[in-house]
Nucleic acid binder design. Structure first.
Length: 827
DNA sequence: AGGGATCCG
């Protein structure tokens, strides 16, 4: 391949980027954009200063630097270099520097005008990581003042339309694709699991395809299932590939042995890793992705459908070395419904780190930065910074915030480092921060409890982190040798990176000024200061259930060493979406005593004493609570004397239906309707209407002197209802809206009252023979409405005028009625 | 029963 596709547009790229200073370059994988464009720019001689190529991943930055140096026949670290965390190969004359986005952001803070830099190339910009978006916006700010800076946004799957619209800049596209890939769709049988479908298809594909097969699955679990299915029925070597494997293990799996194989992988093979000799891809169409819940400040891991551009990338993996095929486990119609691109990462993640960095850069209003996408709901991010003591009343960074913002980690871990340093707990704080920020140092956690891993069980650890710190020490003392680490179930690589982070944190903390004098008695205090809202209380001793503040619930890690503690601080909380709904999981646990909590946050451990409804005894009882902010730490429920509070609690339970009143009858409802009707007819009398507020007063009076539901249940409700009215009012009501009407010969009829309707009675015609005139009700002399029924209960007439009825309609219909109901008496 | 892959003087 002498002429890469990118070389065909080289002239155009140089011309455009020199003229417009900003260029979108959309070029497919394998076009050579990452390795060739920097050199093309350098060789043009039109860029004044270093060319920085920003990468989202360290491994990619390092690899591309190597490859670029090789292509240009220079020694790595001279003209071409790289700079990533813990590792760099550059000198002052380096012209092309590959760098990770995080590191570039850090350097921007000390070189805000980008002196000496002529071009910044953002690779894999489509991922829309917040670090890249922020760095890009800052570069644009630099361009406003200085004209020498050139910016390029590069990717295979740029959301071109949106970016071009937002940025108003030129776009260059190289359309070539390496080799054609045939795409088929298969709608999975609903009865079958996705791994069964994938494995069945794999068997067929392996009979025809020449090279290796790559299967995309969302996670480790599905990968394991797929591998099992395949190994049962195929002789071809099958490998699982995911990010938790060591780089060495990953390399061994990827390595081209010249032999056919099947690799079942997570999304890691979509962009991060390139596997040679893939001629077929099976795509489950699924990916696991985090979504941040700003209200609870918790990440949730979802299994989602991939985007169209993601599907295209995955399929493209089959066409790198020859023509290939791709089987998509979804329908063609679903393909058209899929979203074109994923939502930008900057909108999916916890924005508190972005906010902290913006504040450190002097932007308190994110609007000023003109970010392509600005995260919504920043209120919670402000609250996190406030919680950590990083902001002051003017909405800018406090001293603590300024120092914390320089730490290469999340705001919470920066708080851990800052407060740890201030409290003379630097060493422990750095170790904790390293263990929390880096991937788990423990290997194969599937079956073993954390306590069983560390030798010397007599040691009493009150924190998983202390236990892990001890294991990290063991790993270090055996120089991170894989075989030795294996014996302790330790991941040597992760131990090494945790140790590197630890040492970096130590170096940074040593230069941090001591400004505050905390007298923290224990290293766990600084954990509390960094994660005060991650404190949880066990709900019982037998289950893993815990309560967090703000009424949240969760479940602690069953492999934790801290399963006996009642008060627990978690330094990792995440929601896991399951088929049964989301579960909040707490891990990396530390036991916290109330004394330690009180010592760390003096005066915040408050006693509360209030009357509550106790469902188990069905009574109002007194809850004596000890609370830390919104978390109940201790709760004792005791019997109590009746008072105004018990009345209120019981009344509320009557209102919500928990306590049923046995003597609440139809008669009571009738009484209430009569009183309401009376209030309607005589509004100037000021009679109550038994509004919800009136009823609440009735209930409270009923509950006076009581605490138990069973005492309340059999209360004589009617007398309490009546007692809300004065004696005079009661007499007036009896007269104004009588319960019954006398219809002669000592017989009575019930009167029905309804607010907004006529007052009426319902009667058989025979009952009314003695009633010649319409009775008038109460002082207002309201005529009664009669619903007159035939013997068969069917209404004959509804009237307010009985006289008219007897003289008018009755004589007309009487003969017919008398014939039909001849056994009845007729007058 | 079930935890992706990343980054930071």
């Amino acid at each position: 391949m002498s002429q890469l596709p990118i070389h065909q547009v080289a002239e155009q790229v140089i011309e455009t980027v020199v003229r417009d200073k900003l260029l979108l370059l959309s070029a497919p994988t394998g076009s050579g954009k990452s390795t060739c464009v920097p050199g093309i720019l350098l060789d043009s001689g039109k860029i004044d200063g270093k060319i920085i190529v920003i990468q989202p991943r360290r491994a990619a930055a390092k690899f591309l630097a190597h490859h670029t140096a090789f292509l240009r026949s220079v020694k790595l670290g001279s003209e071409v270099g790289y700079s990533i965390r813990h590792d760099s190969k550059v000198n002052k004359d380096s012209k092309i520097i590959f760098m990770t986005d995080g590191l570039f952001l850090q350097q921007l803070k000390s070189n805000p005008q980008l002196k000496g830099i002529g071009a910044v190339l953002f690779d894999e910009f489509h991922e829309r990581r917040w670090q890249m978006d922020l760095a890009f916006s800052l570069c644009r700010k630099v361009q406003e003042k200085q004209s020498h800076l050139h910016i390029m946004l590069m990717s295979a799957t740029l959301d071109v339309d949106k970016l071009q619209a937002a940025l108003q800049c030129p776009l260059i596209t190289t359309e070539v694709r390496n080799f054609p890939v045939d795409i088929d769709y298969l709608i999975p049988d609903r009865q079958k699991k996705i791994w069964e479908v994938a494995a069945n298809s794999a068997k067929k594909i392996m009979q025809t395809t020449k090279g290796s097969l790559l299967i995309f699955m969302p996670g480790k679990y599905e990968i394991m299932k797929t591998v099992n299915e395949l190994q049962r029925s195929l002789k071809v070597p099958v490998h699982a590939l995911h990010g938790q494997l060591n780089p060495q293990e990953q390399d061994r799996i990827i390595e081209n042995t010249g032999q056919q194989k099947i690799i079942v992988s997570t999304n890691i093979a979509e962009t991060s890793l390139t596997i040679p000799n893939i001629t077929a891809v099976i795509d489950s169409g699924l990916v696991r992705q985090n979504a941040y819940d700003p209200q609870r400040q918790i990440n949730t891991l979802y299994t989602k459908s991939i985007s169209q551009s993601s599907a295209e990338q995955r399929a493209g993996r089959a066409g790198r070395t020859s023509a290939g095929q791709c089987l998509r486990l979804w329908s063609k119609s679903e393909q058209t419904r899929k979203m074109q691109h994923f939502e930008p990462e900057i909108l999916r993640c916890d924005p508190s780190e972005l906010l902290l960095q913006c504040l450190a850069l002097g932007f308190s209003d994110l609007e000023e930065l003109n970010l392509i996408d600005t995260p919504k709901e920043l209120d919670q991010a402000w609250k996190v910074l406030e919680l950590l003591g990083f902001t002051n009343s003017q909405g800018s960074l406090s001293t603590a915030g300024i120092h914390a913002s320089k730490m290469p980690c999340s705001p919470r871990l920066a708080a851990l480092l800052y407060y740890g340093t201030q409290a003379d707990q630097m060493d422990k704080a750095c170790t904790y921060a390293a263990l929390i920020s880096e991937p788990s140092i423990i290997l194969n956690r599937n079956k073993k409890k954390l306590t069983d891993l560390v030798p010397g069980k007599e040691l009493d650890f009150s924190s998983d982190l202390d236990l892990m710190a001890e294991m990290l020490f063991i790993a270090k003392s055996c120089k991170f040798q894989v075989q030795e680490c294996d014996k302790y179930s330790l991941n040597a690589n992760n131990c090494r990176s945790a140790d590197l982070a630890r040492m970096q944190f130590l170096r940074l903390c040593e230069t941090m000024p001591r400004l505050q004098n905390f007298n923290d008695m224990h290293p766990h205090c600084c954990l509390l200061r960094a994660f005060p809202d991650y404190l949880a209380k066990r709900r019982d001793s037998s289950s893993l259930q815990v309560s967090l503040g703000n009424q949240l619930k969760g479940e602690i890690d069953r492999f934790s060493s801290q399963k006996k503690a009642t008060l627990i601080l978690a330094t990792s909380i995440a929601d896991i979406a399951t088929s049964l709904g989301a579960k909040t999981k707490l891990s990396q646990l530390t036991a916290i005593s109330p004394e330690l909590l009180d010592h760390t946050f003096p005066g915040e451990l408050l006693s509360k004493d209030e009357v509550i409804w106790d469902p188990s005894s069905k009574s109002a009882r007194r809850a004596q609570q000890s609370c830390f902010r919104s978390l109940i730490i201790e709760e004792k429920i005791v019997d109590c004397e009746p008072d105004a509070q018990t009345e209120q609690v019981l009344a509320n339970k009557i209102i919500d239906g928990t306590i049923k009143l046995n003597k609440w009858s139809e008669k009571l409802d009738d009484w209430i309707e009569r009183v309401r009707k009376c209030a309607e007819i005589y509004p100037d009398k000021g009679i109550i209407t038994y509004s919800p507020q009136d009823l609440e007063i009735v209930y409270m009076e009923m509950c006076s002197g009581l605490t138990k539901a069973k005492e309340v249940r059999d209360m004589d409700c009617l007398s309490y209802l009546k007692n809300l009215l004065s004696w005079d009012e009661q007499c007036f009501i009896e007269d104004a809206v009588p319960e019954n009407i006398d219809i002669g010969n000592g017989k009575k009829l019930r009167i029905f009252y309804q607010v907004g309707k006529e007052i009426y009675v319902r009667a058989f015609i025979q009952q009314l023979f003695d009633l010649k005139k319409t009775p008038l009700i109460g002082p207002a002399r309201i005529p009664l409405t009669f619903e007159i029924l035939a013997p068969n209960h069917r209404p004959i007439q509804v009237t307010k005028n009985l006289e008219n009825f007897w003289s008018g309609l009755y004589p007309e219909i009487k003969p017919a009625l008398a014939r039909r109901y001849h056994k009845h008496q007729w007058i």
